[in-house]
Design a protein around this nucleic acid. Structure first.
Lengths: 147, 147
DNA sequence: CTAGAACCTGACGTTGACGTGAAGGTCAAG
DNA sequence: CTTGACCTTCACGTCAACGTCAGGTTCTAG
C-alpha cells in the first residue's frame, strides 16, 4: 500500500503520514525509486497515533510509548509513563466536565428566563462550579460523568 | 485590585490578563496614570475564561458567549452556539475516554505478560477500541464514563 | 508514448495562547 | 530621594501538528 491509500483508509493527510515518519512514529519500506510502501497494519497504527494525539499526548511521548506497545510488554519506567498519561487524560476529562457544567448552567438560564434571574438577585451563571466555600478546592472526587 | 493581585488570585500570568483584555474577554478600569484596576468579580470571571479555554473554546467563541452570560439570558442564536460547544465538549470527552481505554489495554498487557501475548498469537494492544466490524462506527451511545 | 495522477524532498506559513525581553513610567517604604 | 517592586506599551519568539506551495520524479491508463 502506498501513501495515498493509507491516508484515505486511515483518514489523515499524506502530509500527516510523512510528518509521523519524520517524528519516528511510523516506519515505511521504500521501493527502488523511493516511494513509501506500508503494510496493512499501518492503518490501525495510524488510527492509534491519531487517538493518542487527540488525547493530548505530544509526539515525543508517543514515540517513547510505541516501542513497548509493539513489544507487547513494558518496563517499570514505561509503565509509569503510561500511568502518568492516563492520569493526565482523567484530569482533562474532569476539566471538560466542569466546563460543560458551566455551559449547562448558562443553557439552563437561557431557557428559563424567570424573574429570579433579574440582575440584582441571580447567582451568576459563571459562578465557580464548586461552591462549598473551602479555601483550597481539591479536584475532589472525580464524579461519575454521564454523557 | 491591580493586575498583579488578580493574576495571583486567579492563578494566571499578568500577560494572560492583558491578553484577555486585548481579546475583549475582560474589561478594566484605569487609574489616572493608566494602571489597570479590577473588581472582585474579575477573579471568578478569569477562572471561567480559563475553564472555557481548557475546554477548547477559542477566544473568538468565548467573546461571543460572554455578553449573554453577563446578561443572564440568551437569544436563539447564542443558544445554538452554547449547544454546539456543549456537543463539542461531549465529543472530546468521548474521544478522551477511547484514548484512555487504549492506554488501559496497554497497561493491562504490561502487567500481565503471559504466553498468550507472544507476537504470533496476541491481538495487538493497539487494536481499534470498537471491533465489532460495522463499517461506519457511529460514535455510539456515549457511555457512562466513570473516573 | 504521453498525459495526468500520484509521489518525492525541502521549506516556509498557519494558528492560539501566551512567554519574554526592551525601554520606560509609577508607587510605597526607608 | 532613591531603591526596587510593580506597572505601561510594543513587539518578536515559541511550540506542535500539520497546510501549502515549489520544483522535480515516477507510476499508470489509454
Amino acid at each position: 500500500m502506498r501513501i495515498g491509500e493509507l491516508a484515505d483508509r486511515a483518514g489523515v493527510s499524506t502530509r500527516a503520514l510523512r510528518y509521523y515518519e519524520e517524528q519516528g512514529l511510523l516506519a515505511s519500506e521504500r521501493t527502488a525509486s523511493g516511494q513509501r510502501v506500508y503494510a496493512e497494519a499501518a492503518v490501525e497504527r495510524v488510527q492509534l497515533i491519531q487517538q493518542l494525539f487527540t488525547a493530548g499526548l505530544p509526539s515525543r511521548t508517543i514515540v517513547r510509548l510505541l516501542p513497548y506497545i509493539d513489544a507487547g510488554h513494558a518496563t517499570p519506567e514505561s509503565f509509569e509513563l503510561l500511568a502518568a498519561e492516563r492520569d493526565r487524560i482523567t484530569t482533562a476529562m474532569t476539566e471538560l466536565a466542569a466546563a460543560r457544567d458551566a455551559l449547562d448552567r448558562m443553557i439552563h438560564i437561557a431557557n428559563h428566563p424567570t424573574p429570579e434571574h433579574c440582575p440584582a438577585l441571580r447567582e451568576p451563571a459563571w459562578a465557580p462550579y464548586v461552591e462549598a466555600g473551602a479555601d483550597s478546592t481539591p479536584v475532589d472526587e472525580a464524579a461519575a460523568v454521564t454523557v
